[in-house]
């Protein structure tokens, strides 16, 4: 792995996270350069989501350091990570079914006039974002409970993107999607990378999708990053082989 240098946006050094007796992260070293899209892969339960949540202040790390643009940070809350420009799209999307699209879009970043919500401004901006992203929804007044998986995902991504994100963390952004909706999100990620140079960490299961948009791949296993290669130096076959060999070992062990 490279040494730390000025081109890193985010750097994790020896990050440890335990849940009681269970040690999930045992010393993760990871870095994301400015403008880089990092694909994070790993088996179910490997701790990928835990790693993202530790980076964003949702969990407090039990050891190690996290540096953002070269400066060590100690994140106490998701709001604090947000104020540093780190935005997350969680696997469960963190949408509130009972609220409208535009209220979800601005959840915890509401536009206000004095003490009151500026619903009109939030509606206008939401409509504009949806148009910019090419997302079709019945109405921005609709409760998100009524939207499809892809529409919900698009709203969650849009929320993260349009809140002045300096870095985006996406936990399985294509999980609940059909091919068409998935392509929409991949296009969006591609555009964010090219037009804005926003660094990203993408948790992905489908390796073919990794090669579409990622610059580099990290494999999280046994609580550590055990594999780190630019996509140009690896292949779908190699990644698949790594995972398959793991299964073989597991079965022989039995």
């Amino acid at each position: 792995m490279e040494n730390g240098n000025g081109s890193d946006f985010l750097r994790a050094e020896g990050v440890v996270k335990d849940f009681g007796a269970v040690s999930v992260l045992k010393g993760v070293d990871m870095h994301v350069k400015k403008g880089e899209v990092l694909g994070l892969i790993g088996d179910n339960g490997a701790g990928k989501s835990t790693l993202l949540k530790t980076i964003t202040g949702f969990h407090r790390p039990d050891g190690g350091r996290i540096l953002i643009e070269g400066k060590e940070v100690s994140l106490r809350s998701v709001s604090q990570a947000r104020s540093l420009g780190i935005q997350t799209v969680y696997q469960d999307l963190a949408l509130v079914n009972e609220l409208s699209v535009f209220h979800n879009m601005f959840l915890n970043g509401e536009l206000t006039v004095g003490p009151f919500l500026n619903n009109r401004a939030m509606k206008e901006k939401t409509a504009q974002y949806m148009e910019d992203m090419g997302v079709n929804i019945p109405s921005i007044d609709t409760e998100v409970a009524r939207l499809s998986g892809g529409q919900r995902q698009a709203i969650a991504v849009a929320r993260a993107v349009y809140s002045d994100a300096k870095m985006l963390l996406l936990d399985e952004p294509l999980a609940a999607m059909g091919a068409k909706e998935g392509a929409l999100i991949l296009d969006l990620i591609q555009r964010l990378k090219e037009e804005r140079g926003i660094p990203m960490i993408l948790i992905v299961h489908n390796y073919a999708q990794v090669f579409d948009v990622c610059d580099r791949v990290n494999l999280l296993r046994n609580g550590r990053i055990e594999f780190d290669k630019p996509v140009g130096e690896t292949s779908v076959e190699e990644l698949t082989e790594i995972v398959i060999s793991e299964y073989r070992k597991a079965r022989q062990g039995n």
Binding site: F58, S77, V78, S79, R82, T88, Y90, D92, L93, A94, L95, V96, N97, E98, L99, H103, L107, N108, E110, L117
Partner: peptide, 20 residues
């Protein structure tokens, strides 16, 4: 008020979105 609805509607999601 909005955060009150959000907290009851999806406590985990609200927390993830940074709602206190």
């Amino acid at each position: 008020g909005l955060h009150t609805y959000a907290t009851g509607g999806n406590p985990l999601g609200s927390r993830e979105a940074g709602v206190n």
